[in-house]
């Protein structure tokens, strides 16, 4: 007998969504998964940061630790971050209805503060909690440029480095406060091959625990094969 330190990576082997009865300390509907670790062990756990409709057998997952009490944490899983696509998708490889893989963006205070500063946005609500609260916000929150940048990064991670953005439209909703997670999802909603350009339209959404933070569309020019 021995033990191995698990990588924290796994795939969803099966899943349920609990609605009834409602047990204190859980939020419902509650995603519960049977996760197969890449080391071969299965465990029952919660699948966080995605909707029930986004649960799919086989989806890649990554572990994180939910602190439930001062001295207790539980290993739970969320959709695994997608690796950046090193090859650019060709227009013919993409079909309307294709789904982009889910991608979680953990919203740490560091991410919110550093991205605001990096985008030269020195508004206090993005780095100073006292001032943010004084101005009526619950906490510091992510700035618009970062939401836009994360959206573009999500789409280009899928499409590849040589995809050309023709436009990017976003609409903001629920704020991105710290200690939450925004999960990006998207799908191909149109294809057009005219005017000398082959363009695909992607509709996307970044959802945190309060609702959609960002929704939008992007148009990308892709090379024909």
């Amino acid at each position: 007998m021995g033990y191995a330190v698990a990588s924290g990576r796994g795939t969803l082997y099966s899943h349920v969504v609990a609605h009834h009865p409602r047990v204190p300390s859980f939020d419902y509907p509650l995603n519960i998964g049977l996760v197969e670790l890449e080391e071969g062990v299965r465990l029952v756990t919660n699948i966080t940061d995605c909707d029930a409709a986004q649960l799919k057998v086989g989806m890649p997952l990554e572990a994180w630790h939910l602190q439930t009490h001062e001295d207790v944490s539980l290993p739970v899983f969320r959709p695994a971050r997608i690796p950046r696509n090193p090859e650019t998708l060709a227009f013919d490889q993409v079909s309307v209805g294709d789904e982009l893989p889910l991608c979680p963006v953990p919203l740490t205070p560091t991410l919110i503060v550093s991205t605001a500063i990096a985008s030269r946005d020195y508004q206090d609500v993005h780095h100073d909690r006292d001032m943010a609260v004084k101005k009526g916000s619950e906490d510091i929150f992510m700035n618009i440029l970062t939401s836009s940048g994360i959206s573009a990064r999500y789409i280009s991670d899928w499409a590849g480095p040589d995809a050309v953005f023709k436009n990017l439209k976003i609409r903001l909703g629920a704020p991105n406060y710290p200690d939450d997670c925004m999960t990006m999802s998207g799908s191909v909603t149109a294809k057009q091959d005219s005017r000398g350009e082959a363009v695909v339209q992607v509709s996307f959404r970044g959802q945190n625990s309060r609702g959609p933070h960002v929704t939008g569309t992007a148009e990308l020019a892709l090379a024909r094969r």
Binding site: Y13, S14, A18, T45, V76
Partner: peptide, 21 residues
């Protein structure tokens, strides 16, 4: 303790996991 902390506490939930697979 392998299942209850994640809200898998009822017979219906235990069976549902087999059903999805």
């Amino acid at each position: 303790s392998w299942t209850s902390p994640f809200g898998l506490v009822t017979p219906a939930s235990w069976v549902a996991m087999f059903a999805t697979r």
